[in-house]
Every structure is written in structure tokens, then in C-alpha cells.
């Protein structure tokens, strides 16, 4: 394994400038397509769930092409299976690369988790132990993804509900080391930090202490639920909570500017409501 890359070793010049660092973006979801085409809101970029454009129907990609004529598009994945035990799916990577090239997508992001076993896809983002033994494995696979896609690859921290006896390093150490040893980038989800900190009892500021800010490609914001059991559930079905805004403000102070993206995946409100939520991000930054 080669030596870790550092900030100066930017293998993709312009990677961090292809989306303006101050840009605000929104997760592109079908209920908003019509309003976006009609209203053309002032937004820095949209983020797609890549898997939604790899299916049998040509319609989603046709719609996306029209929006991509007016806005930069970045791609987010949910099925790389970075911590899965099986080899990476080369066909999937190939389809992703085609999508990235067709739409000139400047970077791709996916999660530090596993998503499938023995060919069966779970359609969920599943946690693996924070065991140092997994770090070179995950870093090597992330490196392979970045090489295969030909654009910077941002690794997203996970929200999780279980902790393992094998968790012998803190999540933030595990995450930082995978990002740094892979030569890839960080896709920091602030909501996920809050959810996991509440579920596992750690200090989210300690997490931020460990973030490699010079490698942060993008930041995610979203809402989550508090279940009757007390667990925080990463649902993306409501406005961003106060704890998440507070941590975002702190993150911006420590590592900003960085492109910021709002995810809203269930109980999706009218476009105007989602845009109002992004206005809050502007206010938080300037406060």
C-alpha cells in the first residue's frame, strides 16, 4: 500500500472547486421535478441518488438531462457495499461511470457501510465494526472506486443504531483513517453525527475534532426522528433539527466553507418548503 495522500496531493485538480465552496444544494427527488423545471430556483447544485438512474426506465434519466442543462449535478450512491465481504460490483461501477461521464458529474459520494451479502441487496446502509483490521480493506476498496469512476470519491459517515464489541477505535478515528489512507474525500453528514452520537453516547464535538476538514468534499443536512425507545432514527422525513443546526454552525466555523446539501427523502414537502430549509443554512452560516 502506498503512503497516504495529503491535502497537497490533489489527484483531481479542481475537484474541490467544481462546485463552489459556498454552494447550497438539494437532493433531487421526483416530486420536485416539475416545480424545478417551472420555477428554476436559485440553487448551487442538485444531488441525485445514482441508483435511481440505473434502472430499466429511461424516463428518470430523460428528466435528469433537462435539469442538468441548468444546474450542476453531483451523484450520491447507496449501494457500493464498501464494507461488504464480496468483491466490488464492477458492472455497477461501470454503469456509475457512464452516468458520471454523460452528465459531467464532478464527484461521487457513498457510505462507509455494507449493503449486500452473497448477491442479495438489502437496500439499507448497514454498520460494520470500527475495527482497525477493516481500515486498509475499506481504504483499498474506496481507492478502487475512485480509480474506476475517474472522479473524486467522497466517503460518507454513517448513522447507526448498533455498536459492536469489535469497535476498538472510535467511529471518528475509523472514518478519518479510511478517508486519509484511501486518498479519497470526506462526505460529512452532520445529521448522521448527531444521530450516532445520541444512539451511542459520544460527544459530537469530539467527532468534529477529528474531521479532516481539508478533505471535506461536501456536507449533508437532514432531519431525523426520535423513536419511543429513545433511539434516533435517520429518516430524512422532516426539517433539520436544532441539534443538527448547532453542529452545522460549529462545523462551518471549523471547516467552512464547504458545499452543503439538504436531503429530504420521505414525507417530501413542496419545493418551497425545502428551499426555506436551505435559507436556514444561510442564516446559520452568517450568525
Amino acid at each position: 500500500m502506498s503512503a497516504p495522500r495529503d491535502a497537497a496531493d490533489d489527484r483531481a485538480p479542481g475537484a474541490r472547486s467544481s462546485i463552489p465552496r459556498e454552494a447550497l444544494g438539494l437532493g433531487l427527488r421526483p416530486p420536485h421535478h416539475e416545480a424545478i423545471e417551472r420555477l428554476r430556483p436559485r440553487l448551487g447544485f442538485f444531488e441525485i441518488i445514482a441508483e435511481n438512474y440505473l434502472g430499466a426506465s429511461p424516463l428518470p434519466r430523460e428528466r435528469l438531462r433537462r435539469i442538468a442543462e441548468r444546474y450542476p449535478i453531483v451523484a450520491h450512491g447507496v449501494s457500493l457495499n464498501l464494507l461488504g465481504e464480496a468483491p466490488l460490483d464492477r458492472d455497477h461501477l461501470s454503469r456509475l461511470r457512464d452516468l458520471i461521464q454523460e452528465l459531467r458529474i464532478p464527484y461521487f459520494t457513498d457510505h462507509l457501510c455494507w449493503t449486500a451479502f452473497e448477491g442479495v441487496t438489502h437496500h439499507d446502509l448497514l454498520p460494520a465494526p470500527h475495527d482497525p483490521e477493516l481500515i486498509p480493506y475499506a481504504a483499498g476498496r474506496a481507492f478502487e472506486v475512485q480509480e474506476a469512476l475517474g472522479v473524486p470519491f467522497g466517503i460518507e459517515n454513517l448513522s447507526s443504531y448498533v455498536a459492536w464489541e469489535r469497535d476498538t477505535v472510535p467511529e471518528w478515528v475509523f472514518y478519518r483513517r479510511v478517508v486519509e489512507e484511501s486518498g479519497c474525500w470526506a462526505m460529512l453528514d452532520i445529521n448522521n453525527v448527531v444521530v450516532s452520537s445520541k444512539n451511542h453516547g459520544f460527544d459530537p464535538l469530539e467527532y468534529l475534532d477529528s474531521v479532516p476538514w481539508h478533505r471535506v468534499l461536501q456536507v449533508h443536512l437532514a432531519g431525523h426522528q426520535v423513536l419511543p425507545s429513545g433511539l434516533r432514527h435517520d429518516t430524512h422525513d422532516r426539517p433539520v433539527g436544532d441539534e443538527v443546526w448547532s453542529l452545522y454552525e460549529e462545523a462551518w466555523r471549523r471547516g467552512g466553507p464547504f458545499p452543503t446539501l439538504l436531503e429530504w427523502d420521505a414525507e417530501i414537502p413542496p419545493l418551497s418548503v425545502a428551499l426555506s430549509e436551505l435559507d436556514k443554512a444561510r442564516q446559520v452560516r452568517s450568525s
Binding site: P136, G140, E147
Partner: peptide, 21 residues
């Protein structure tokens, strides 16, 4: 860096099999 990061640790497969079940 070696592509693929080598083989996964043996315990990972067992853990993911049980989780999948």
C-alpha cells in the same frame, strides 16, 4: 495502494451472514 484492499477478515463474512439472516 492495492486495489480492493486485499481479502476481508474472516469474521466479517460470518457477521454479515448472521445480520442478513
Amino acid at each position: 495502494m492495492s486495489p480492493g484492499g486485499g481479502d476481508p477478515p474472516g469474521w466479517l463474512r460470518e457477521l454479515q451472514r448472521d445480520f442478513t439472516a
